[in-house]
């Protein structure tokens, strides 16, 4: 669906050249929800704008649906853009137009649609986002979540194959964020639209992304299936983005505390388990088959997209042989473990 090859983009400011994108390559397959996550200023916004060429890259190719956008004429580019829906952090609705007219705008700009056609299409979209009864209201009377739904309806009315999301939930509260993410996921599944989104919120990736790229200082530093990247981040920055500060602090404290308890027979392990293993009685099995005692220091259960996963911080009490045996059992059950102490 999308292939980006060796994209670079630099700005000149005060005589200095700042590389916003530094040799970025990535590929998004049809039907995927692809997340690009990074801190502010990492270059993710520029990268997204390159996908419909609102920003012209200095070098590199942007191939969307088989067309290299950097190589076509202005007119062709306009037509190509009509096949790419975009939703924005600040919604960008026209305050002078009703919800109906806001959603109808892309069709109006395309021309060649009759009034009946337009009305049928707008009605369908408003139904999809659950705002049918708001058709004749103005944006100022809507809440943030409703405005974003209008934005989504407007982005989808031209039946695009690709939807770009520019921090679409960053201006919304957590509950509204969740409902918008659900809607995006529903759209992705029922209409088969490929979604590329940029965000600085790991929750967004956790909830709906199939794949994720972590961008920092204009470079993609880690990329892969959302599940793998989230569960086993390789780069320190990725870890920082993913692991909430509180849980990171907690781990630090535990490490600090046990530093002084050398050779006490206590071992601290961080267990991560995914999918079906999440529901298996792992600790019970270990306790029965070895003579290890255990206590749970901390635990969480969550989902990444639809995959359940859990993480447990366990203190095992026993000798090294028993610990080795426990590790074997865990390996056998597909549990990922990290010995912290």
């Amino acid at each position: 669906m999308i292939k980006i090859e060796n994209l670079t983009k630099a700005y000149k400011a005060k005589g200095k050249t700042i590389k916003v994108l530094d040799d970025v390559s990535l590929e998004v397959k049809k039907g995927e929800v692809y997340g690009i996550i990074g801190r502010s200023g990492a270059g993710k916004s520029t990268l997204l704008k390159c996908l419909n060429l609102l920003e012209k890259p200095d070098t590199g190719n942007v191939i969307v649906d088989g067309i290299d956008l950097a190589k076509i004429s202005k007119k062709e580019l306009r037509l190509a853009r009509q096949q790419i829906g975009v939703i924005f952090q600040h919604f960008n609705l026209l305050s002078s137009k009703t919800i109906f007219d806001n959603v109808a705008l892309p069709l109006k700009l395309q021309g060649n649609h009759s009034k009946e056609e337009t009305k049928a299409a707008v009605d369908e979209m408003l139904k999809l986002v659950g705002l049918t009864e708001f058709a004749h209201k103005y944006p100022s009377s809507l809440s943030g979540g409703q405005k974003q739904r209008v934005g989504i309806a407007r982005a989808l009315i031209t039946k695009p194959k690709l939807l770009l999301s520019d921090e679409a939930t960053s201006a919304l509260d957590p509950q509204t964020t969740a409902s918008i993410l659900d809607l995006l996921l529903e759209i992705n599944e029922t209409l088969g639209i490929t979604i590329v989104l940029i965000t600085h919120e790991i929750e967004v990736v956790r909830k709906i992304c199939d794949k994720v790229a972590v961008i920092d200082a204009g470079k993609i530093i880690e990329e892969g299936k959302a599940f793998d990247v989230l569960m086993h981040p390789k780069e320190p920055l990725t870890r920082k983005l993913i692991i909430e500060e509180t849980s990171d602090m907690y781990l630090e404290q535990v490490r600090h505390f046990y530093k002084f308890e050398k050779n006490s027979g206590k071992h601290i392990l961080l267990l991560s388990f995914v999918g079906e293993t999440t529901y298996q009685p792992i600790l019970n099995t270990i306790a029965r088959q070895t003579d290890l005692d255990f206590s749970i220091l901390r635990g969480e259960l969550d989902r990444i997209k639809k995959m359940p996963f859990g993480q447990l911080l366990i203190e095992f009490n026993g000798d090294h042989n028993s610990l080795g045996k426990a590790c074997e059992i865990m390996q056998g059950m597909g549990v990922h473990y990290e010995i912290l102490h």
Binding site: K49, N52, R78, Q82, V86, L109
Partner: peptide, 17 residues
């Protein structure tokens, strides 16, 4: 708002439109 222009250009609008 500047974002309105991004939106318009993303929709493939001409300057006149």
């Amino acid at each position: 708002e500047k974002g309105i222009f991004h939106m318009a250009e993303s929709c493939g609008a001409t300057t006149w439109q």
